[in-house]
Design a protein around this nucleic acid. Structure first.
Lengths: 105, 105
DNA sequence: CTTGTATTCAACCTCTCGGTTGAGTACGAA
DNA sequence: TTCGTACTCAACCGAGAGGTTGAATACAAG
């Protein structure tokens, strides 16, 4: 697990991280604010944010004492791109199968 | 990590499993055939297939000594559904921001 | 019945993940 | 400068992931 695709999928495999991503669609948020919604320590949330940042799903900016997390939606395209590619191939396969059956009933 | 969404994301976080999924878009395949393309033991591939099955990404059928793996594309919808929901929310947020800026230039 | 082939089960190992606590850093306010 | 707040770093822990090897199971073919 070292490429960006693997990191992105792995990042979203955790429910807390998915919840963080969901909240960041509404607004940029600080670590403390994000941590207030979860029953884990602030340090744990800080770790989750680092994972999301490494996966390219968020960027971070410092403003005084606070560190604001900002959602980066581009990685979403990477994921849907991969999924759609193979979904399309699978559908194409069934299409061909249907053709064969139609030709040889 | 216990819900179906988490299992699906986690399953696709591994490069070998993504490659297996990719190959299964072309045709159903046996364990031995899938293992022949990877530099890990047959048992390791067998484990990967179990993970994919638990995640709902494949189904399996026995035919004689062979166990055929078959791709189930429905879980793809679960993933793209989640992603698109939040991508849309994020875009909506920028839309509103643009409106505000346009109104208060 | 025996042998070979396809696959899984079981035990084990190592590394990573997600969590904790405690200390350190960076900044704002008084 | 001192104090409180926001956050990260570091060390540790338990559980699980992903790999291995060796034995067991299931079936086909002689």
């Amino acid at each position: 697990m070292d490429d960006e695709l693997s990191r992105a999928f792995a990042a979203l495999a955790d429910p807390i991280r998915r919840d963080i991503v969901a909240r960041l669609t509404a607004d940029d948020m600080t670590v403390t604010e994000l941590a207030s919604h979860h029953d884990v320590s602030l340090q744990a949330v800080s770790k989750h944010l680092r994972v999301l940042e490494t996966a390219g799903l968020i960027s971070r900016r410092r403003d005084g004492q606070q560190r604001w997390a900002h959602l980066e939606v581009d990685v979403f395209d990477l994921l849907t791109g991969w999924i759609d590619t193979y979904r399309r191939r699978a559908e194409l396969r069934y299409q061909r199968l249907d053709d064969v059956l139609r030709r040889n009933p």
